[in-house]
């Protein structure tokens, strides 16, 4: 509940900032990917670099953020260091304030993440594990992860379900 209130306030805050940021984004338009496209964000987004939406390669993601989690997961052995872009940062870049994210993996596994549930630092779209890019055979190239060890709420079924690996598409729907 508290989290929801906080998010609501945050949403309100960003809402007020909207005209300014839109102008800023417009001035700083999203570039086109130069490397292998890793992630395509489509749907109700305001910032795009293609017909269908916004496409990111690894460098574009790295340019957005290089945030790190040091945590264990229930799918791996031992402590892992993840590097990636917090989803909130990504959405901010795309000027998304509400709605629901439909995240899909290469094998068409799909989950929903309401924008309101997204914390400023969690989850994030990890593009490196233990300093290395992740291969498709090892849950790569992108993996939505939570800092599971930092908070019990990230060790719940819903967080595990949202921890989608082999991510390659996100659709923003209202």
């Amino acid at each position: 509940m508290k989290r929801r209130v906080t998010s609501f306030i945050a949403a309100g805050f960003f809402g007020l900032m909207l005209p300014l940021t839109t102008e800023a984004q417009a001035a700083d338009a999203l570039p086109k990917p130069t490397g292998v496209p890793l992630l395509e964000v489509s749907g109700d987004i305001k910032v795009k670099n293609g017909v269908r939406g916004a496409v990111f390669d690894l460098q574009m993601l790295r340019d957005l953020a290089e945030h790190e989690y040091v945590t264990t997961t229930i799918w791996t052995e031992g402590v892992q260091t993840f590097t990636g872009v917090p989803l909130a940062v990504l959405l901010d870049r795309l000027d998304v304030e509400d709605g629901t994210l439909m995240a899909k993996a290469i094998n068409d596994y799909a989950i929903e993440i309401p924008v309101a549930d997204i914390d400023p630092k969690a989850p994030m779209v990890a593009y490196m594990m233990n300093g290395k890019e992740m291969s498709r055979r090892d849950k790569g190239p992108l993996w939505i992860v939570f800092p599971y060890d930092s908070d019990a709420k990230y060790r719940a079924e819903i967080a595990y379900a949202r921890s989608i690996w082999q991510l390659d598409r996100i659709a923003v729907v209202q």
């Binding site: 229930i74 799918w75 791996t76 290469i106 094998n107 291969s135 498709r136 055979r137 849950k139 082999q166």
Partner: peptide
């Protein structure tokens, strides 16, 4: 190749996950 990798990844989880 993608389906192989996905299967590979899935089996990797069975091999490594503490669960």
């Amino acid at each position: 190749r993608r389906s192989f990798d996905v299967f590979y990844s899935r089996v990797g989880i069975l091999q490594n996950s503490p669960i």
